[in-house]
Design a protein around this nucleic acid. Structure first.
Lengths: 252, 252
DNA sequence: CGAAGGGTTGAGCCCCTTCAATCTTAGTGG
DNA sequence: CCACTAAGATTGAAGGGGCTCAACCCTTCG
């Protein structure tokens, strides 16, 4: 998977930020100059643990992870899936204490950046600060879409929507094609993302296969007709904000 | 309701920001010096309309509003309720175009601040910028809690949780007591918040009343035993982050 | 070869929806 | 003051989507 290691371990972060906002050369250099250490994690290990103080921002350099919340009755809710370029705890690195956990789905490489360094960078370079802020706003937009999905779509649309979103994000991260990819998670994980039981996820996947929306083989998903699955999913990718950069005036 | 108009129309914003972060006197002055105009809205009117460009940040000075997303099949999802002190579109004023609407629940007074002014303030005063950013992160935390609630709690817990959250936020905004308040929304609105039909909201409310969790009279809600309803709601208010300010080091 | 995790399938049930009717309340005009 | 209207609250009956429980199978790995 890591045939060609990126020239710089913070490249995925730079790639992400420039997606949100054009950066000047000094700004790019400042991003790459962030102090950091690199660590690896095994599947199932916690990258961020609920209740523990967050001293570092965690950039996901490779691998997949997910954000979970445990409900009192023991059930689990997954509120996001993370992949290369995601800063997994921008959401709470400012807050100081996490009220949820982030767990590795696959072997992960993470970049650990002291949270003061991130905040200092954000305000030393407003343009970068805007891009970071923007990133958290896009995540919030995804949260809202998930709320709508779980609240008002049926199981077919929910699963199909998740598959569409994952594919589009994979492609945007340069990790493959939205029409054909490998899911890093089990059907139980899928269910915890969309508020269904693993049993019903299984039946819904088979149903989507029967209706010709997807083809499956183990955890590989193939989509022959993007327009078709978009329709059953009610998927419109605008909420991911991948198309256009923020138009907020520059400060430089 | 407006017996004593606040000395300054941006006071609710200042109040909110100082909840997240201690501000110096010049910083407080800078917040209040923001250019703005004040407008009023009738119930059912749109404060922010989906697809329209956002040129201003909207501070809710008085009244209640909600954020909605319309799903293709015609159903509606409400992703947040807003009250005094909320900047209703910090979430998308940076993005430039809204992918959802914000609608007034009651007569509202809003402060309209040019979005460039907000961004400039945020970077001229990092401390204020941090507070603004923090505010959007708290909103994201609420989104995640709603995802968990809709996905994994039954109707009793969902409704009870919403009632708890609303009460606590009311109290934090200085608008009343969490043990006794007036709901500004219909049962249909409640249902669109938690992913239920109005019919079932009605039955659930009666059920909560029968079990002694709440007392009702029209849209007034009274809670005799906070511990009891917290238990049935699985409500822990930490996700609202009202208790403690961010511990991120100051920059001033 | 045994164990464990995860995928698949069946049967029955129940929470919530759907559809539809009735009631209450507030507002409006005569 | 009252008829009229509309929005919202309430209630009943019936149906279905997704859950629960409980198997069984398949693959991987030590």
């Amino acid at each position: 998977m890591d045939d060609q290691t990126p020239p710089h371990s913070l490249d995925p972060l730079l790639h992400r930020l420039t997606k949100w906002r054009a950066l000047t050369e000094p700004e790019r250099a400042a991003v790459l100059a962030l102090p950091h250490s690199v660590a690896t994690t095994e599947p199932r290990k916690y990258i961020i643990r609920q209740e523990s103080p967050s001293t570092h921002s965690c950039l996901l350099i490779s691998g997949f992870a997910f954000r979970e919340k445990i409900i009192v009755n023991g059930s689990r809710s997954i509120s996001s899936i993370h992949m290369r370029g995601d800063v997994v705890n921008l959401q709470n690195s400012l807050v100081g204490v996490a009220n949820h956990s982030v767990q590795a789905l696959s072997p992960c490489t993470v970049g650990l950046i002291p949270r003061e360094a991130v905040a200092e960078l954000a305000f030393a370079f407003p343009n970068i600060g805007m891009a970071l802020w923007y990133d958290t706003l896009v995540q919030a937009s995804m949260f809202r879409e998930w709320i709508a999905s779980i609240a008002r779509r049926n199981s077919r649309a929910r699963i199909a929507h998740l598959l569409c979103e994952f594919g589009v994000r994979l492609e945007a991260a340069g990790l493959g094609s939205k029409l054909n990819y490998q899911l890093p998670m089990s059907q139980e994980h899928l269910g915890d993302c969309v508020g269904l039981t693993p049993v019903h996820v299984n039946r819904t996947l088979k149903d989507l296969e029967a209706s010709g929306d997807i083809t499956r083989s183990k955890r590989e998903v193939a989509i022959a007709d993007w327009a078709k699955i978009s329709r059953t999913a009610d998927f419109k990718e605008d909420y991911l904000h991948l198309a256009s950069r923020t138009t907020t005036p520059a400060f430089v």
